[in-house]
Design a protein around this nucleic acid. Structure first.
Length: 602
RNA sequence: GCACCCAUAGCUCAGCUGGAUAGAGCGCUGCCCUCCGAAGGCAGAGGUCAAAGGUUCGAAUCCUUUUGGGUGCGCCA
């Protein structure tokens, strides 16, 4: 009954046979593809055509209808036909489908589709029935993805830069989960390098201080107040055992103690931002266990390790440059610009070696995709990490690295830089305690990750339209308020009641417009998930909120558009059903961003 | 010197694996509060998508070059 070629269709596992796909765009795309296959089998299209580039998208101009497809134009060349000829044929077939109100050829060969209003009403019903899961996609096909983010050195509290990385990574992880991936959130603890020795020495100073000694924090130590309690805690634990002792006596133990204390601090910071990790991976655990050696051996087996001397960078030779032989990873074989050292001249590992081992471990754990989130200042490591993963996985495991740009803080119209807590940088706590986790998270996602972000303490708390946090929250609260009011008039307003409402009472173009915006949600989830760009969710929510507010305000001039229709429970139900559908999507979207939807504004 | 990121309205920024007349907020101009929440609403003006070539039916989007910003560049992680 189906043409054989149907088998090549990508089947969405979450969309079972009996349920309609929730994504109207992919639903209509399938209709278009099915019709193209039909044209193929009846000979009006030549064999061997690929339909991969056929897209069904919302047109930029609403006057062009609800959806548009480029099918005729992308097929014209391979089919050696005129676009309009293909379009004319396709239009005739499409128009037979009950879901299509009208189909017409426009411009150079676009096909503009107008959908039956029933579809939009069904969609609203579908949202109410599906609830928070509306828009959840099967795109990821359950693939295992590892998202590594924050990964700050365990030497102090998280600062603003980490905050952006934390929010971005966490939202991306949630987004991918919603898009059908099996996501692991992971934090790499850099507890193996010289910086934790510095930490230990700094804590030792605070420890001496706790014993009443005067100490001086020289360059190369961490002077922040946050180590004061750690010094005291150490005193409580070991008494005066380390006082006057040589570093060789206490370094290892204090390092352990201090690192653990810093990780507690960092975990608390993350918790304050509602970020939870599935796994913390310790760099130190790679040493002395053969894991680094294994990873390097894997590269060596591929002929990618050699002893050699690097050329100095051209145009900017460091003053103390001298050629030396090192153990190098032939990263140039996998797209890097120069080969990278994995061992220092004294034979110790460079920082890159454990990084390779760590990613080797991730590959070995069987992830289908890896994502690393770095601060923009680590942009220089992107190529070598990609080269490493490419080599370690034989090109089988894609690694996407997202960089988060700087956050510039403003307060009272001027740059805000100092922190009482940490001395020379503003901490995550400083931000969250002033504006709250919800606001922090939303604002951090109102820019593309690779664009610098201005964070103005005054503006983000402002209750006005130019503050997207407020605007989106207000839309949700407004629906809650309307729902409550509708309930008071006697209308039944549980989601189940609303799903059963007579939605044919939603007939005004303004109402259909809002339903159409809701219909874009599943598509947006897939686009944002495909590009690893959670900020798209934030922008969409703003647009959706705007539609809701707009409809609400139309009720001023057109009473029949008001959400609550006094004395008409049926009409009220229909209006509230639409509003509630918007709220459900806002709530789900905010959930991905890690923001709590507001029930009321105050 | 090389690599990566960026350049879109006066300002801050979106812009879908290349789609039709490039969008939003702020600011500006003009209307609108006896009206479900005016902590605003509606409408309008405002653009050579840094520049020049190229690819193609079609480019803000892809390629090349140039200009102008940011970041990074072997024993720091």
């Amino acid at each position: 009954m189906f043409p054989l070629t149907r088998a090549i269709r990508v089947v969405n596992p979450r969309e079972s046979k009996k349920d309609k796909p929730m994504n109207l765009f992919s639903q209509i795309r399938e209709l278009v593809i099915d019709n193209l296959h039909a044209m193929l089998s009846e000979g009006s299209l030549p064999r061997g055509l690929s339909f991969d580039n056929v897209a069904v998208e919302p047109p930029r101009d609403a006057a062009h209808g609800d959806m548009a497809t480029n099918a005729a134009m992308v097929l014209a060349k391979p089919a050696q036909m005129k676009p309009r000829d293909i379009a004319e044929l396709l239009v005739q077939n499409l128009a037979m489908d009950p879901r299509i109100e009208s189909a017409e050829v426009a411009g150079p060969g676009f096909i503009n589709l107008r959908l039956s209003e029933t579809l939009w009403r069904d969609l609203v019903k579908n949202v109410l029935e599906t609830g928070a899961d509306f828009g959840r996609s099967g795109m990821g096909q359950g693939k295992k993805v590892n998202v590594e983010y924050v990964s700050a050195n365990p030497t102090g509290p998280l600062h603003v830069g980490h905050t952006r990385g934390a929010v971005f990574g966490d939202a991306l992880a949630s987004l991918l989960d919603f898009a059908g991936y099996d996501v692991t959130r992971e934090y790499y603890i850099n507890d193996g390098g010289a910086q934790v020795d510095v930490l230990a020495r700094s804590v030792y100073l605070r420890y001496l201080e706790a014993h009443g000694q005067d100490v001086a924090f020289e360059d190369g130590t961490y002077p922040g107040d946050y180590l004061v309690p750690v010094g005291k805690a150490l005193k409580d634990k070991v008494g005066d055992a380390y006082v006057g002792q040589d570093e060789s006596v206490w370094l290892v133990e204090i390092r352990e103690f201090a690192t653990a204390a810093m990780m507690d601090l960092i975990r608390d910071d993350l918790k304050a931002l509602n970020v939870t990790m599935d796994k913390f991976f310790s760099e130190k655990s790679l040493y002395g266990t053969g894991l680094i050696e294994d990873a390097l051996a894997s590269l060596e087996a591929k002929g990618l390790i050699y002893e050699g001397v690097l050329e100095p960078p051209k145009g900017k030779t460091p003053e103390d440059w001298e050629p030396r032989e090192q153990t190098l990873f032939k990263s140039t074989e996998h797209g890097d610009d120069v080969d990278r050292p994995v061992k220092k001249s004294d034979g110790a590992w460079t920082y890159f070696a454990p990084d390779i081992a760590y990613h080797y471990d991730k590959v070995q754990r069987g992830y289908d995709e890896l994502i690393d989130i770095f601060g923009a200042d680590h942009g220089g490591y992107v190529k070598r990490m990609k080269a490493a993963v490419s080599a370690l996985s034989d090109g089988q495991t894609p690694l996407d690295i997202k960089l988060t740009q700087l956050v510039k803080l403003w307060k009272n119209g001027e740059p805000f830089k100092m922190s009482k807590r940490a001395g020379n940088f503003v901490t995550l706590r400083d931000v969250v305690e002033q504006v709250g986790a919800d606001v922090t998270r939303f604002v951090m996602l109102t820019r593309k990750n690779d664009a610098p972000l201005d964070f103005d303490f005054d503006k983000v708390l402002e209750q006005s339209k130019d503050n997207p946090v407020f605007y989106v929250q207000y839309a949700h609260a407004r629906v809650c308020s309307a729902l409550k009011k509708a309930g008071e008039t006697g209308a039944a307003v549980t989601d189940a009641d609303l799903a059963g409402a007579d939605l044919s009472l939603l007939s005004d173009p303004a109402e259909i417009t809002v339903a159409k915006k809701v219909a874009e949600w599943p598509r947006l989830v897939e686009i944002a998930g495909r590009t690893n760009e959670p900020h798209r969710v934030a922008f969409y929510l703003y647009e959706l909120a705007s539609e809701l507010h707009s409809l609400y305000h139309m009720g001023k001039d057109k009473p029949e558009l008001r959400f609550v229709q006094e004395g008409n429970a049926q009409a009220t139900q229909a209006k509230i059903a639409l509003a509630r559908a918007v709220a459900i999507v806002i709530s789900a979207g905010l959930g991905i961003l890690g923001v709590t939807p507001a029930q009321e504004m105050r």
